[in-house]
């Protein structure tokens, strides 16, 4: 009886997963390749964030205490290395920069990054951090392939170096489009090291977007296994009860 349905269910499941996977791709961005289980990467990402980003960007939903607990750091580590505003360990991460100043400097207050990866995706954030290039036409001197006319000057330029665009051949009358980016002046890191750096930073921001992700993966497997075992027992019970139904 049940066997008759297996092909249809397999087909339905396949279609569902297939379309979900196809939809999740969205625009073509390289995979960030980050891994939330890599605690060392999360710690490096946190250091990068607090060295290069927190000057302007807050994580208003993220508390210092939670970072210490989840990333295996001591309270002293976090208070000495990450907390530049004199906040308490239970306080959220709020940038030093007054919003009015930020508005003046950049024309737009730097966004809070607590939910950046939830909103844009890890691949987007990683690609964004790899796509800055020198642009003399822009007021801040920088532009970005993923987010054209981004208001942010490139904060990691010392690490990556300076990229310049390689223009594609344009049809007559059209503006030439950027085809790819080329490293003009290397920075302190090799391209491989820099990619690992942005991967770490992206990883940290993904963690910040949903700290519970660490917990749910930890518990999830046991919950699912328990429920499958329960289903098996329920099936045996059903078989026993239904023995006399013909």
């Amino acid at each position: 009886m049940i066997k008759r349905y297996i092909p249809s269910f397999a087909l339905a499941l396949g279609l569902l997963l297939g379309t979900t996977a196809a939809m999740a791709e969205g625009p073509e961005l390289a995979s960030a390749g980050n891994n939330l289980r890599d605690t060392a990467s999360l710690q490096r990402g946190a250091h990068l964030f607090f060295n290069y980003c927190v000057g302007c960007h807050s994580l208003k939903y993220m508390r210092y205490q939670r970072i210490a607990d989840d990333l295996g750091l001591t309270e002293d580590d976090v208070m000495n290395n990450f907390n530049f505003t004199g906040g308490k360990i239970g306080d959220p991460v709020i940038s030093h920069m007054p919003p009015e100043d930020a508005q003046k400097f950049f024309g737009k207050a730097p966004p809070d990054l607590s939910l950046e990866v939830s909103a844009k995706g890890a691949d987007w954030v990683n690609a964004y951090l790899n796509s800055f290039y020198l642009d003399p036409k822009s007021q801040i001197g920088w532009n970005n392939l993923v987010l054209p006319n981004a208001a942010m000057p490139f904060p990691l330029w010392e690490l990556q170096g300076e990229q310049v665009p390689v223009m594609a051949a344009a049809k007559p009358g059209d503006d030439p489009q950027v085809a790819s980016l080329k490293l003009l002046h290397p920075g302190r890191l090799t391209p491989e090291q820099y990619q690992q750096t942005t991967r770490d930073l992206t990883n940290f921001l993904e963690y910040v977007s949903e700290p519970a992700a660490l917990q749910r993966r930890h518990y999830g497997i046991w919950v699912v296994l328990f429920l499958l075992a329960f289903t098996f027992l329920a099936y045996l019970l059903k078989k026993e009860y239904w023995k006399d139904v013909h």
């Binding site: 749910r216 518990y219 999830g220 289903t231």
Partner: peptide, 10 residues
């Protein structure tokens, strides 16, 4: 519930 838990946790 097993399917739901898979979605909820993963």
């Amino acid at each position: 519930l097993a399917i739901a838990a898979f979605i909820i946790f993963f």
